[in-house]
C-alpha cells in the first residue's frame, strides 16, 4: 500500500514537472483564450451581484477580488 502511494506520488511529480515546462501557448495559439467568454471574470456584473448576495448572507467574502464590503448588509 505504501509502495503504491509512493508510485502515485512519483508519477504525479514527474507529470507535474513535465507539464510545467510546457505550460503556456505561442501568441498565434490564443484564438480560444482571446474570446470574451474565456476571460476569467467574463460576467463582472453577475459576479458583483452574487458577491453582494453572499456577502450579506454568509460570513465569507473575497477570493476572486477584495474581501471588503462597502455595504451595511453584513
Amino acid at each position: 500500500m505504501k509502495n503504491y502511494k509512493h508510485t502515485i506520488l512519483i508519477v504525479s511529480l514527474v507529470a507535474l514537472t513535465s507539464a510545467c515546462s510546457s505550460l503556456g501557448v505561442q501568441p498565434w495559439e490564443r484564438d480560444l483564450l482571446a474570446k470574451d467568454e474565456m476571460a476569467l471574470n467574463s460576467s463582472p456584473i453577475d459576479a458583483s451581484l452574487d458577491d453582494h448576495i453572499y456577502f450579506s448572507k454568509e460570513s465569507s467574502s473575497g477570493g476572486r477580488g477584495f474581501a471588503g464590503g462597502g455595504c451595511g448588509c453584513n
Binding site: 505550460l23 503556456g24 480560444l32 474565456m38 476569467l40 473575497g62 477570493g63 477584495f66 474581501a67 471588503g68
Partner: peptide, 22 residues
C-alpha cells in the same frame, strides 16, 4: 491585500490562484 497568479496552461485552459488578506 490580494496576490494573484494567472497561468495559461494550454490553448484551451487558463488558471488563476489568489491569496487574499483582509
Amino acid at each position: 491585500l490580494l496576490l494573484g497568479v494567472t497561468q495559461v496552461i494550454d490553448r484551451q485552459t487558463i488558471m488563476q490562484f489568489n491569496y487574499s488578506y483582509s
